[in-house]
């Protein structure tokens, strides 16, 4: 027994060192980008990639903020992400509530519709959505009512992500005892009160997790803002980075600072809200 234990201890140490070495390799690209973002690009061009810094400071950041107009793009991200996450959670919780608390014939069918819809490729729905947005714009007399507008991007995110939220929330609600709902009904609570006063407070943990996960997903989304917006100044920061990369290709370190700023909200998720992020992911993959 003992020699086996000893060899296991040795093996574990080797595994630990191996995984640890890779872990360092994993964070290295980020650290290198961070390091470079404090140095001027011309110094690197002149003195080499591994030169010791002569100038070192936050000048790339101040530059990125003023020349790349990052605050505008960050603001664009917020006015898309926040309403989209909010509406996704409201709609998802409504459907999940009805499907899991009231027995209608179409319950499973509804859940399937939403869950499957969430899995369809974005490219498959793009052409008609694009046409629909333009036509709605023509009807209301403003071509940019949904197309090239933050609201258009918000709606498509909500329509897609609602499927995931519905699925996650309804599996969670199945774990809440039916007696709680029953006593509310006996007390004569209306459907609205049943949802608002009874169920919603109980849904706080999964809603928090979903909110964090959805915020990361929608903030990081690239595709929809790219194809449904034509005015660059309206685009969220994730999509704008692609163009900025082309424009500032001559000053890589400036771009590094821009990338770090763009990543800040998600880094906050990583450092502060990781528990919610991880449990949000898990809620979707393992039932209940």
């Amino acid at each position: 027994m003992t020699p086996l234990r000893d060899s296991q201890v040795l093996k574990d140490r080797a595994i630990s060192i191996f995984i640890g070495a890779f872990a360092m390799l994993w964070v290295f690209p980020i650290l290198w980008t961070l390091w470079s973002s404090f140095r001027p690009y011309k110094e690197i061009r002149a003195r080499g990639t591994f030169s010791m810094p002569e100038e070192f400071g936050i000048f790339n950041y101040t530059d990125a903020i003023s020349r790349m107009q990052l605050p505008t793009y960050l603001w664009n991200s917020f006015i898309i992400t926040i309403p989209a996450v909010f509406l996704t959670l409201v709609f998802g919780s409504l459907i999940a509530f009805v499907v899991s608390r009231y027995s209608f014939k179409f319950n499973v069918g509804m859940l399937l519709l939403f869950t499957a819809g969430n899995l369809l490729p974005a490219q498959l729905v793009f052409i008609p959505v694009f046409k629909l947005y333009l036509n709605i714009g023509d009807v209301v007399g403003d071509r940019r009512f949904l197309y090239d507008s933050p609201w258009g991007v918000v709606l498509i995110h909500v329509a897609f992500q609602m499927g995931f939220a519905t699925f996650v929330l309804s599996s969670y609600m199945k774990t809440i005892p039916k007696e709680i709902s029953e006593s509310a009904l006996v007390d004569g609570a209306s459907v609205l009160r049943h949802y608002w006063n009874v169920m919603l407070p109980l849904l706080r943990p999964p809603l928090a997790s979903l909110a964090v996960l959805m915020t990361t997903w929608i903030y990081n989304d690239f595709f929809w803002a790219l194809v449904l917006m034509s005015t660059d100044k309206k685009r969220p920061i994730t999509s704008a980075l692609g163009r900025l990369q082309g424009e500032f290709v001559t000053d890589y370190n400036l771009l590094a600072a821009g990338a770090i700023i763009a990543a800040l909200p998600t880094l906050i998720v990583f450092f502060v809200l990781r528990k919610q992020f991880v449990s949000g992911l898990t809620l979707g993959s393992t039932k209940g």
């Binding site: 872990a23 980020i30 980008t33 990583f270």
Partner: peptide
Amino acid sequence: RGHKLYQSAYYLPVVLSLAVTGIIWNF
């Protein structure tokens, strides 16, 4: 040994957008 730290290291890239990832790897 060190599993908590390792887990964070491997998890970090998951929260970054692919646009940011592209710039980082370009570096």
